[in-house]
Simulated scan of single mutants.
Amino acid sequence: MKFPIIILILLALVSCKQTKENEVSSPPALKELRLTFGVYTTDKPTDVVAQFRPLLNRLEQKLTADLEQDVKIKIDITASYQAAIKNIAEGRADFARFGPASYILAKQQNEEIQIIAIESNKGKKTFQGVIVVHQDSPIQSLAELKNKSFAFGNEKSTIGRYLAQELLLENGIKCSDLISYDYLGRHDAVGSAVGARRFDAGALKEGTFKKLVAKGTPIRVLSSFKNVTKPWITHSEISPSVLEALRKALLSIEDGEALEALGKQGFLKGSDSDYSIIRQSMLNNAAFMGKE
């Protein structure tokens, strides 16, 4: 009877030793860090996810390695610019990608908002916005838009409102000179509305214009104008280590597929002064609206 008992004791000791060895050899579980990435709908929400998810996946990998934490990034797509601005200003989004005007408006609500990096367009900090008309439209100049209808994007949009309205003003057209105008919210909605002849002209970003034309939307460029590329920003309460890791990750991104989905070639260092021209166009907007 004693022999089986001794065997059982020995087996128990071996099992205990193996358990301890496994505990020593297994790496400790990484702490989890969850971040929320904020963006608003300039195009269809499904297109927005397809545009950003590949890059965010790459960011998760880089941040996990750098911070030694298991980093997960959730996309929060808001239906309005205002909601996205409020989320980043109040810290409900950890970082975000905004247009220049939305960044300036968010900065007005929270001065501590910081730029992580700004998007590179073939090594430059600028890209094109366009004013389009129907492909068969007889309109050939901006001056001919007087007494015509115009589709703008969102009321907080850099291209869809501020820069487009400043360009119209430079060509002698105020809002009172248009027979009608409306804010349609999204760049693709503007292009589609002009293509369907519901408006004589409209303002949208060049990338969306190209996508619509490729799908058969009958629109052409009447005029183009420069805009500053979009900043990626973070709220004031984010830890310095996470901010630095985000900046390092963005500036070192070389994943071709992820960047292609975003439609950019990488990221550049940026500062608030890069957006001075946009800030000035917003100040000039009162003249277009006839409030001066």
Rank of each mutant, 00 (worst) to 15 (best):
C175I: 14
V242A: 01
F267W: 06
Q135D: 01
A29K: 08
P138E: 03
F225W: 00
R197H: 15
D136E: 13
I88E: 04
Q109T: 09
K211V: 01
G153E: 00
H187A: 05
K210S: 11
S241Q: 15
S180I: 05
K72Y: 08
H187E: 00
D76S: 05
T126P: 05
I277R: 08
T78L: 07
A65G: 04
T41W: 13
S141R: 06
D94R: 07
D70E: 05
I85F: 07
R53T: 12
W232N: 12
K264M: 10
H134C: 03
P240N: 13
S236A: 12
T208R: 04
Q108A: 06
A96W: 04
S141V: 00
D188F: 00
F127K: 02
E68V: 12
E68S: 13
N284K: 09
S180F: 09
I238F: 11
A249S: 10
I253Q: 13
K205Q: 07
A249H: 01
E155L: 11
K107P: 08
L10M: 15
K44E: 14
A261E: 14
L11N: 13
L212F: 13
Q61R: 04
R197T: 08
H187N: 03
R279A: 11
Y162H: 01
F267D: 01
V132M: 09
T229P: 00
S241R: 15
